[in-house]
């Protein structure tokens, strides 16, 4: 399933949950783990000074410094790295999202793994200039699935027995479905196909009547069946479900109810609405709320 995993880490506690999952997966699939750390943000015009993301100090980055950071990371993950794990540690300078994408372009991993939002750790000033979070940017542009773990509750990748796939019927969702199906087949587990009917209550002029809602739900269920069921039949166990509400909430609730250990969704909001970072897209909301790892797919 996964042969090459790019694990982008801050090598601080903010990435610990993701680290657990990264090492779990690498071991489970005998994958090569590319541990990648962006050590700092370029600063000072053309000068060599960089603001270290971890210490917030201004440092002169030279080969010695890079080597030192590399050692630090090795020490930080020493326990995980034992026993013949196939790994590589790489350190770069730049804006995190950009450098992660650059690395992914070079190494073509089949999964990118990101930790939780490390925004709080970032230098305040640069955060303001570079609108949008690392997560948003990577999920939006990556050419492979992106697995994100933000909460400790989500930091386990064991025997996966149930996957929730959330669809909005977009093209990207079709791609995500392919991936979810393949995953369910390989892992021999349940797949729950889910769609949430967005009910925008307060702001909309007219509340949908309950009859309308139920009518819509039936329609969407038909769409799900037509679109996915023929393929789902190859699986031992699957369900299809449509709920109404605020989509990201419903998906998280549904995943909890089906005891899913993984959620797969398309990152379809391709254009970055940098101004309302607080809201973000559904998948981003799911990521910060879910009790299990979330994989986002955009192509």
């Amino acid at each position: 399933m996964f042969k090459k995993i790019l694990f982008a880490t801050s090598a601080t506690r903010a990435s610990d949950h993701a680290a657990r999952v990264a090492f779990n997966i690498a071991r489970a699939y005998h994958a090569r783990l590319d541990i990648f750390h962006v050590l700092g943000v370029p600063s000072r015009g053309y000068s060599q000074v960089v603001v270290d993301i971890k210490t917030r100090e201004r440092v002169d980055v030279d080969d010695d410094y890079m080597a030192w950071v590399q050692d630090e990371i090795t020490t930080y993950y020493a326990d995980y790295l034992k026993n013949g794990l196939d790994y590589d540690i790489h350190v770069a300078v730049g804006l995190p999202a950009r450098e992660i994408l650059r690395r992914a372009r070079e190494t073509e991993p089949d999964l990118i793994l990101l930790g939780g939002s490390t925004e709080e750790e970032h230098d305040g000033v640069y955060k303001k200039t570079v609108a949008g979070t690392t997560l948003q940017k990577v999920a939006r542009a990556a050419r492979c699935p992106v697995l994100v773990v933000t909460r400790p509750a989500a930091s386990f990748w064991g025997g996966i027995s149930s996957i929730t796939f959330g669809t909005d019927f977009s093209k990207a969702s079709d791609k995500a479905f392919e991936f979810a199906l393949k995953m369910a087949l390989t892992l021999n587990c349940e797949l729950h196909v889910f769609h949430a009917l967005a009910i925008t209550s307060l702001s909309s002029e007219r509340l949908m009547s309950q009859d309308d809602i139920e009518q819509k739900i039936r329609e969407k269920l038909r769409v799900i069946r037509a679109r996915y069921e023929p393929r789902l039949k190859t699986l031992k166990q699957y369900t299809m479900e449509v709920w109404e509400g605020i989509p990201y909430m419903e998906i998280v609730k549904y995943a909890r109810e089906t005891h899913s250990d993984l959620i797969i969704m398309a990152h379809h909001s391709r254009k970055l609405e940098t101004d309302d970072r607080a809201f973000g897209s559904n998948v981003e909301q799911v990521i910060v709320r879910a009790g299990c790892p979330v994989i986002s797919i955009n192509r």
């Binding site: 600063s43 000072r44 015009g45 230098d123 305040g124 000033v125 640069y126 303001k128 200039t129």
Partner: peptide
């Protein structure tokens, strides 16, 4: 202008006057 952009960025970092650029 790249240079001005940098300087204004740095001035926010130094003096924190709450601007975006």
């Amino acid at each position: 202008c790249h240079n001005c952009w940098d300087a204004i960025r740095d001035l926010e970092e130094e003096y924190e006057i709450g601007i975006r650029w």
